[in-house]
């Protein structure tokens, strides 16, 4: 090409389908956008949102008590059923658990995130990062299984308490109403511990991200203005870390609300929302009630996300 006679200012096209398509995309960038967005939008918009919407619709159907078949007529009867005391119990129990798990996760996560964000340097930073990432990504079921081993009557926790002659402490705790049970692995305490363990990394990462975004000179400015380290922490660092905590709480709260496996494996026979959904759609075959139950976490999360957005938590995600 270089040896050819001097080319003009406008070169010929490459030709072929590729050249023509490329020219078309350049002339009309919207066409390219359309081509790029169609497959994901078809998949997520039609398959996923479509399914969600179909589920929502079914919550307005009801079930015929005699035949057990779904009656496809608009009714609020199923929602009436949802508000029965026994079902309200389930909702209150789940939301309380989600709240407690979120608070506990935030308390345990903060020092880890704070250390990793402000003190860990170089190699230690990488170790902390992987130290959170590996548990986050390792198998959910294996993590639950590990706690089944830990909390079992013959397991490591009982063994440690026995060695320390503290067995009465466990027995006393298990004898308490509400939180107690036959053994740790069939008590709400056990369920709570496993939830905190499994969702903790989801709290650490956004809090760490938020803390890392606090410029050091802001802390120096606070110190320079005469604030003690404690005052700097509570007046500067904590407010700035709050969006991260809220972002993390979206995960811990939402994940706890929808989980049905952990309370099934480690916990009492009292139902959580997820278990109720599973039971109603499965053995009971009451899809409308199951659908109505799923609307509860969606509505709760909707309100939660709206509040979080107002608090500016999405920038920390």
């Amino acid at each position: 090409m270089t040896a050819a006679a001097a080319p003009g200012a406008i070169l010929p096209g490459r030709g072929g389908l590729g050249g023509a398509l490329s020219d078309a995309f350049w002339r009309n960038p919207k066409l390219l956008l359309f081509v790029m967005l169609t497959p994901p939008l078809l998949w997520l918009g039609i398959i996923y949102l479509g399914s969600l919407f179909a589920l929502l619709i079914q919550s307005f159907f009801s079930i015929d008590e005699f035949s057990g078949l779904v009656v496809r007529e608009f009714t609020l009867k199923t929602y009436g059923e949802l508000l029965r005391p026994s079902n309200l119990d389930i909702i209150v129990r789940t939301v309380t658990m989600a709240g407690l798990v979120t608070i506990a996760s935030a308390i345990i996560a903060f020092p880890i995130a704070y250390y990793a964000a402000r003190y860990a340097k170089g190699r230690w930073k990488a170790i902390f990062y992987l130290g959170v990432m590996l548990p986050l990504w390792s198998s959910y079921l294996v993590k639950v299984y590990a706690w089944k081993l830990i909390l079992a009557k013959e397991g490591i926790l009982s063994w440690i308490f026995a060695k320390l002659h503290l067995t009465p402490l466990i027995d006393g705790w298990l004898a308490l109403p509400v939180v107690g049970g036959n053994s740790l692995s069939v008590s709400p305490t056990g369920t709570f511990l496993v939830f905190v363990y499994v969702w903790l990394p989801f709290m650490i990462l956004p809090v760490q991200a938020a803390l890392e975004r606090v410029p050091t000179n802001l802390l120096e400015a606070s110190a320079d203005l005469g604030a003690s380290p404690r005052q700097t922490f509570s007046h500067v660092l904590l407010p700035l870390a709050l969006p991260g905590v809220i972002a993390g709480s979206i995960f811990t709260f939402s994940l706890t609300l929808g989980d049905y496996i952990i309370p099934q494996i480690i916990g009492t026979s009292h139902l959580f929302i997820g278990m109720a959904v599973y039971a109603h759609q499965g053995t009971a075959g009451n899809i409308p009630l199951a659908a109505a139950f799923t609307v509860v976490p969606v509505v709760i999360m909707g309100i939660y996300l709206w509040l979080a957005k107002r608090a500016g938590a999405f920038n920390a995600l």
Partner: peptide, 22 residues
């Protein structure tokens, strides 16, 4: 839209798909 399948509890995604398949 992309984040939604992760942000919503898995059980909702699961039961939605199952009832859609049905």
């Amino acid at each position: 839209l992309v984040i939604l399948p992760i942000a919503l509890p898995g059980i909702i995604t699961g039961i939605s798909l199952r009832s859609a398949f049905n």
